[in-house]
């Protein structure tokens, strides 16, 4: 079945909330996430003519999104520019009351997620945040289901430690890396 440009656009629209959360998980900042989302959508639309029927749109856009973020990070490193993505000044839209009601705050979660390996973080995102089944995540990542399960298990075990006592994580080696390293 051939997809028209309008249907293709509607598929992107349906993907937007999920893609936006992915941007948020990559950047750790709502402002950066929306800029990344905008750049991703703009680039995708400009490449419509190159999009081949039958290509998995989700994977296509997620990959594009990640590559754009890699480029941005490299650029920031060259410029020597860094920001604290969890600076509350950067998240004026977050309802303080909502954050307070959370059992764990956004900062705790983001700090812990940043310490996971990239291969673990994407699986946590797909399964825990987006509710993918193991089979769906395996298909999305072109991995065996067993690999998905073992990576998720390692991620959950690491998160158990990191979210229980984040101040003790220096002595706990989970093979994680700092923010720029997540962009491998």
């Amino acid at each position: 079945m051939t997809t028209t440009a309008e249907q293709w656009r509607d598929d992107i629209v349906a993907l937007l909330p999920r893609l936006r959360r992915y941007c948020y998980s990559l950047t750790g900042s709502a402002v950066d996430a929306d800029d990344l989302l905008q750049n991703t959508v703009e680039k995708a639309l400009s490449k419509y003519d190159q999009f081949q029927q039958g290509t998995d749109l989700d994977r296509w856009m997620f990959r594009m999104c990640k590559n754009l973020w890699i480029d941005e990070w490299r650029s920031r490193r060259v410029r020597g520019h860094t920001i604290d993505p969890m600076d509350s000044q950067n998240e004026p839209w977050i309802d303080g009351e909502t954050v307070q009601e959370n059992k764990l705050g956004l900062r705790d979660v983001q700090t812990a997620m940043d310490k996971l390996q990239e291969e673990q973080r994407i699986i946590v995102f797909l399964i825990i945040v987006e509710g993918y089944s193991y089979k769906e995540a395996a298909t999305f990542l072109s991995l065996p289901i067993g690999t998905v399960m073992s990576r998720l298990a390692r991620a959950r075990k690491a998160l158990e430690q990191l979210l229980r006592a984040p101040e003790q994580d220096a002595s706990y080696d989970i093979g994680g890396m700092d923010a720029p390293g997540r962009l491998q």
């Binding site: 656009r9 992107i12 629209v13 937007l16 909330p17 936006r20 959360r21 948020y24 998980s25 709502a30 996430a33 929306d34 989302l37 905008q38 959508v41 703009e42 639309l45 839209w93 977050i94 309802d95 909502t98 959370n102 059992k103 764990l104 705050g105 956004l106 705790d108 979660v109 983001q110 997620m113 946590v124 995102f125 825990i128 945040v129 959950r156 998160l159 158990e160 979210l163 229980r164």
Partner: peptide, 29 residues
């Protein structure tokens, strides 16, 4: 603990849903 962590992670990243989608993106589409 794991269930609490899962719920916290999901809630943290879904938090951006409550922020309006940028008008520029909607305009482009």
């Amino acid at each position: 603990d794991m269930r609490r962590n899962d719920a916290s992670i999901a809630q943290a990243y879904h938090a951006i849903d409550s922020k309006p989608m940028p008008a520029g993106i909607l305009d482009m589409l």
